[in-house]
Amino acid sequence: MDDSIAMQVTRYRPDKNSQPVPVDYEVPLRTEWTVLDGLNHIKAEQDETLSFRWSCRMGICGSCGMNVNGEPRLTCATFLSDYAPGPVRVEPLANFPVVKDLIVDITDFMEKLPRVKPWIIRDDDVTEIDGEYIQTPEELEAYQQFSMCINCMLCYAACPVYGLDPDFVGPAAIALAERYDLDSRDRGSRERLDVLIEKEGVWGCTFVGECTSVCPKHVDPAGAIQRYKLKAAQESVKAFLLPKALRR
């Protein structure tokens, strides 16, 4: 193995650059080094101004998503040696406005998330807690996969629909809606469907499935979207046939 590898990193400073520019760096190539280690090496040894987000460096906080050689990746879980002999191209996640260098603006997702009501909705009003809601391992299994989303935004960066139509609620938010719908403790599926049935809800998705294939936590947002389309279709048939009071 060579002892160094080239990293081509996209730089952008809003106060200086009119558009992003690629800059070449050379970093040590070590088997245990991730792309994030390479970026941290650049920041510590070559250019302190390089800006990127990171925190847990163990693939769970969701901060360090970037496009690596064109693919959305968690850089703390992507190894430089897998790209040898290089160069490794590191760009900000696609489909988001860039704030600076490798940092993108995810305000849009943060505003969309509450709209799908990602919390337990009950029809009883519990004031005093005197025990757990019973949930069997099978019932847990039913939604578990969808509860693994770390909000890393890789699926938004991979989604061609979100790229064209920023109003689309998008894969992670829909997967989280489904996570609560499938939770045996929840009674809120009707409320969420009302949101997702809207024009900007699930309809934009064209079933490319890129969201599912880039997910670092093996969540299946494409599956969630498909299920919502089915639920929405059933709902519109009901709406056509039944007076409002009888739907549910």
Binding site: I120, E132, I134, Q135, T136, Y143, D183
Partner: peptide
């Protein structure tokens, strides 16, 4: 009580076969 509150807020605690924590 705090852990039960988290359960009511949707934390996916691992369960015994009968569905208890």
């Amino acid at each position: 009580r705090e852990l039960l509150q988290l359960e009511h807020w949707g934390c996916p605690w691992s369960r015994q076969d009968d569905g208890r924590i």
